[in-house]
Design a protein around this nucleic acid. Structure first.
Lengths: 219, 219
DNA sequence: ATTATGTATACTGTATACGGTATACGGTAC
DNA sequence: GTACCGTATACCGTATACAGTATACATAAT
């Protein structure tokens, strides 16, 4: 006898609601003006309020949503200073990742990065969302390859906070394309094995992303 | 008339439960063998299960507790590899903080750090908890001074995950005292304004903390 | 017309009820 | 005694009920 274990974890409806909400935000089905109301969502999903509430509160704690005093949750809107700090935090995570990868100088990892970049940069339908997703996938891959689950978790949370900025901002495609094209150079630096240079390069890259972002918020 | 606004936020019982649980863990009132059961906690706190459940789930998502398949939550016990990754993540956060502070070279901030270190290193009752708290306060101050709320949040979450390791480990006092004494040197490097050296120094310091930790886990 | 006030409505937070699953335990067959 | 099985118990996840607070709107007072 060799049957697989079926349920290793406690299952929760709230997790599914959470995922659905994250996807809905990423696909711009929830806009900055929408108010997410527990009862409405619950009837829509054909479940009770409890798991809906749990998912909403989780997103609130993660800084994606904010609870309005008059009821309902909405996408948290960062101010410019918060965005600056968020990019600084991203630099911490991704800079460290670059250091780790540069120290290891693992050819498989380097090759994986190059592949990922080539694949993701090859965008067919040039929408802001697609640029956004490609960029996300590339940056996430850097962290995934470090194998550090906490760095990955921090990046995910950080990226979640940023969703509302990126998805509902108005960056021009041409700028996005240019920004997306600058990833391969980062791999070259990492491949050289210079961990300080790698950190500096990634930091610089993220700083440029921030400036691109800010320029378009000022309009 | 100039009355202060009373309730700017939605208040929730779950937040109080959360705080109480965090404090209880930090004060070693909850041990690694304890099983936290929703119903038991609820009757103990004289409230219903709902807010207790919310607080427990939040701590689960933060990686402090883990839900046992057979019911109840317990302190999450990291393995050695996870501890290593956690320290690596801390280095990301605190290394970036050091870079920021070194770049600014603000004399007020430098003075604040020195004050904090002197105050916290002056421990009256030499218990493991007290060393732990002092170390926490010093490291947190570095991040607080950057003014970056996300770095601070990440440090808090990271530190939360580490509570169970530190509090129930068995590091000798003498080692802790030595480790605690090495903070002032970090400030000196930051004061020099060399951001790379600052990052390296902090990384090195955290690496030493990790090795101290690991040495005592192997017993 | 504008301001104040009462009342309905919208939503929330907390408590409780209910059904299901997993462990614990005690009895029965060998 | 040991292996197996059935039932009791513990605990959870989800649904629902209930009470309190904030907004909206209509009505009354100036």
């Amino acid at each position: 006898m060799a049957l697989k274990s079926i349920k290793p974890e406690r299952r929760r409806l709230a997790d599914k609601v959470y995922e659905q909400l994250v996807n809905a935000i990423a696909n711009r089905e929830i806009s900055v003006n929408d108010r997410l109301v527990q009862e409405k969502l619950a009837t829509e999903l054909q479940i009770s309020r409890t798991p809906v509430r749990e998912a909403l509160m989780r997103l609130e704690h993660e800084g994606v949503l904010s609870a309005s005093i008059s009821g309902g949750f909405r996408l948290y809107q960062m101010n410019k200073e918060e965005i600056r700090e968020l990019y600084q935090a991203r630099a911490a995570i991704e800079g460290q990742a670059a250091r780790i990868l540069a120290t290891r100088k693992n050819p498989d990892e380097i090759a994986d990065l190059r592949e990922t970049i080539l694949r993701e940069e090859d965008i067919q339908i040039k929408t802001v969302q697609n640029y956004f997703k490609a960029n996300h996938n590339i940056h996430r891959r850097f962290i995934e390859l470090t194998g550090n689950r906490f760095l990955l978790e921090m990046l995910n949370v950080t990226w979640g906070k940023a969703m509302a900025i990126h998805l509902f901002g108005s960056i021009a495609e041409v700028d996005l394309a240019k920004s997306l094209g600058s990833h391969m150079a980062l791999v070259d630096v990492i491949e050289s094995g210079d961990k300080t240079a790698s950190l500096e390069a990634v930091t610089q890259h993220i700083q440029e992303g921030f400036e691109l972002q800010i320029r378009h918020l000022e309009d």
